[in-house]
Design a protein around this nucleic acid. Structure first.
Lengths: 237, 237
DNA sequence: CGATTGGTTGAGCCCATTCAACGAATGTGG
DNA sequence: CCACATTCGTTGAATGGGCTCAACCAATCG
């Protein structure tokens, strides 16, 4: 087979196994490539989409970092997630054909756009793709339920520990340091995500610093005692 | 076409439009019926499945009422949802092939069991079924995000108002009274779901009663001022 | 340069929790 | 049938974790 004529966005992508093509054979990935992927840059601070925008495409984060946030009628707003390379944006819009959250780039980023109609058609041809996509959607449900557990039953200190441990794990899966984190979001974003106020985030980071669990310098965080954070999470009654 | 020989579980089901067959043509529903549905009774208090059970099937609630709850390693537990007729149980297990929550019947109930492998195969034959199922999964994501908003940014009073309004709406969609609710779950279940303590649930119900928003007699609740509850939700800063 | 945004820290307050007592309803076994 | 245990719900009093309000500093930007 001569690949020289073919597009190959996913095929040689370093995070292929963390993204939509996960679990597909080489042939299947090439088919996916042929049908629909192209890359779109998004500048820091710019929206990839906004609440109410018509839904056409899913977006896999290629490089960079995003946040998604929903706004309630009454003006209330809440960050629902932070997405890094390989993670998929827009899954919530499938149900309504309109985006129900804002997706904002927290640094200069790029996404792979996937026309959802074409994607569904390809799923009809490629049962494995459809199977994997069902799992992707289900995984998002599991993720959300984890956050529900966090918001419903953890104290502020535990929430922040869980947040940091989760970030570290995801960086680590992308072969970045699990101990040297550079936060791309503000304290307010973190607080909104965790259901606490930004002052509380700041105070608790300082407390972790005092306890020598962390070294905090603005958005640069070094985790000094990973086990200390784990203990905070699992030592609950 | 002679239907007399055919199974028809979904075809004549009164809540068909609230369940998996939503949006399918009559022919498609019959095909769905032929391939895989059978009903299973579940007694009050009994589990439909438990955390860790291998995932084989999805379950659509036919009659009755369920709760799902996850248990964290450290013993923490949280109710993640209440399911009534037409709603689908087990979507979260698709990602891991094991159930990650307990599903307990809160009254004598019956579910329609759907072998997921067969269902996926049928989705390959019937693009509309697959399309609708993608929407079902996405809708579950949206639902979870709504709960995240509730848990992350509402006060206890607002959470309870939102809970009651949501229940009323779902009963109403099933042609039951939107003002006379019979709660099938305990105060503790409600509290766990809403991220507050059972005493707080009880106190706030009493307060609503005093304010003549509700009439509360144990698990029998009559909503006297629906707009009063709505106002509580939307009058936020 | 002033203006703006992001972050830290303090003081006081309030909402929800904790701990506790009690009543009602339900179920069980003698 | 009753005595007893258990589960469920209500209410009170005291406590505390996180919020509000506020001041201040550092970095960035036009």
């Amino acid at each position: 087979m001569d690949f020289s004529e073919l597009k190959s966005v996913c095929y040689g992508c370093s995070i292929r196994e963390l993204c939509l093509p996960e679990g597909l054979t080489d042939e299947e990935v090439l088919l996916l490539d042929q049908h629909m992927l192209h890359r779109v840059p998004v500048r820091k601070g710019e929206p990839l989409y906004r609440t109410g925008d018509p839904f056409k495409s899913l977006y896999a984060v290629s490089t960079g970092f995003f946040k998604t946030s929903i706004l309630h009628e009454d003006g209330r707003t809440q960050v629902t997630g932070f997405q890094m390379a390989g993670e998929v944006l827009g899954l919530d819009a499938i149900s309504t054909d309109h985006h129900i959250c804002d997706a904002i780039a927290l640094e200069d980023s790029a996404v792979c756009e996937i026309d959802f109609n074409q994607f569904e058609q390809l799923g009809q041809l490629m049962s494995n793709l459809q199977h994997r996509f069902n799992k992707t959607l289900s995984r998002e449900i599991v993720r959300d339920q984890g956050i529900m557990l966090l918001l419903g039953s953890m104290r502020a200190e535990e929430r922040l520990a869980a947040f940091l441990v989760n970030l570290a794990k995801r960086f680590s899966a992308r072969r970045q340091s699990a101990s040297q984190l550079v936060l791309r979001m503000t304290r307010e974003d973190i607080g909104s995500y965790l259901g606490i106020k930004l002052e509380t985030v700041s105070r608790i980071l300082s407390r972790f610093h005092d306890q020598q669990l962390l070294e905090v310098r603005g958005r640069h965080i070094r985790i000094l005692q990973p086990q200390g954070l784990d203990r905070l999470l699992n030592s609950n009654i």
